[in-house]
Simulated assay, not measured.
Amino acid sequence: MPRKPTRRNPSLRHRPLTFSPFGRSIAMATSSNKSRREIEEPKDFPTFSGNGCVNHGKDKMEQSDSSDSEDFEGVVQADFVFFDPKRGDFHGVKVLLQMYLDNKLWDLSGFVDLILGQPTVGTVVKIENDEDDGVYSVVTALNLERYKDNKCIIELKDYLLKVCEDMDVIPKLRNLVGEHAKDVGLVVSQRVVNLPPQLLPPLYDALFDEIEWATEDEPTVELQNFFRFKFYLIMSKIYKHKNANAKKGMAESGEEAIIYIKPEDEIFLELKNYRLMGLVMAVEASKVSIFRKKFHSLICLAAY
């Protein structure tokens, strides 16, 4: 697998980044010189338009003028681009995570600071050349042990243990976020509801590739170890039918027992070790490769 430049390379710090580490890895794949450490712009890297279609090199000016053309039919073209998280994304990321713990009052600002303070692993999605610099998606993974003393992580753990009503699950959850927290990566993945689904597999590919790279590229062994996850903790929401526990009734009605708001959650649930409240899942890190393959297939099927 082609490797991206290490984050420790000083030449990268002042170089303007137009796409995320995932995009940079694609750019490197097109280079015959695998040892080269400079970022290269891909000549025909596909971008994603706001109507869910893939745009292969369409002229940007043509796209920006399309909304004023006579044949405008209500579809606005917008190119989504991947970026490393930065401090300037604070407001956009905070808006996306506003309901991450439902209506609980907690240190959300501190949580956003953790996400933006870890640019080596994490991606935000924006619209290219957007004057408002809005954030349409954020995905990252935070080591629970690394940030255990932060107020936001303490409050998040307390929240999970408090809302869990399954007495058999609580000890497992407490063990996961406590004694074995060093092995757990909290996957934070929030986005606007109408984000093109074609963006999702590359987003997760970028996340898990970056985690793998971080185990070698971080400047100290301690930091590298923070990314050697054995479990991923995923917090999400689902719609559960009121008769979901009545198998006969559900079979007769023909209705779905569970509706997944995020398509990836159905795959994560298949790979789970524990299912907590139907909202939180602990997945073995060793099963990520299975998830990536299934998720690519799922999105491809949905697109046709």
Rank of each mutant, 00 (worst) to 15 (best):
L144N: 02
F90C: 04
D130L: 01
G50M: 07
M1W: 05
E62R: 13
I259M: 06
R228T: 11
H241Q: 09
Q224N: 10
V139C: 03
E165M: 15
K162M: 08
D71C: 13
V280G: 09
M277F: 06
L17P: 03
A246V: 04
P219A: 09
S69Y: 12
S253C: 13
E216P: 05
D217G: 03
Y100K: 05
F82R: 01
K294Y: 07
T123I: 03
N143Y: 06
G122C: 07
D149M: 09
R3W: 07
E218F: 09
F82H: 02
L17K: 11
P263D: 03
L200I: 04
V188P: 00
G249T: 08
G117W: 03
K43L: 11
F295R: 01
L12R: 06
L114V: 13
E222V: 09
C53G: 02
G117N: 04
S69E: 14
D65I: 12
V221L: 14
L108R: 09
D168V: 09
K126V: 00
L97H: 11
K293F: 07
F48M: 13
T215G: 05
R146Y: 11
K43N: 06
G278T: 06
R87V: 12
L203R: 01
V95H: 08
V288I: 15
D59N: 15
Y232D: 00
K104N: 11
P197N: 10
P10N: 10
C152R: 05
M99F: 07
M167T: 13
G52R: 04
M235D: 05
V75D: 11
P196K: 04
V187L: 08
L12V: 05
T215V: 06
R174A: 15
K60R: 11
I299L: 13
S69V: 08
K172T: 10
D84W: 06
L279T: 13
L186K: 03
P21G: 08
V177P: 01
S297W: 06
S236Y: 08
E40C: 14
P5C: 14
L223R: 14
R36P: 02
D166E: 15
N243G: 05
V124N: 00
D217K: 05
M250C: 07
R275S: 15
I261T: 14
S69K: 15
D209Y: 11
R36E: 05
K230Y: 11
F291E: 01
D59T: 12
I115S: 01
S66Q: 12
T215M: 09
G92Y: 00
N245R: 08
G122A: 06
D113K: 12
T140Q: 01
Q98N: 14
P2L: 05
F111E: 03
S11L: 13
E256S: 11
K182V: 07
M61V: 13
V54Y: 04
L271Y: 03
V139R: 01
A78T: 11
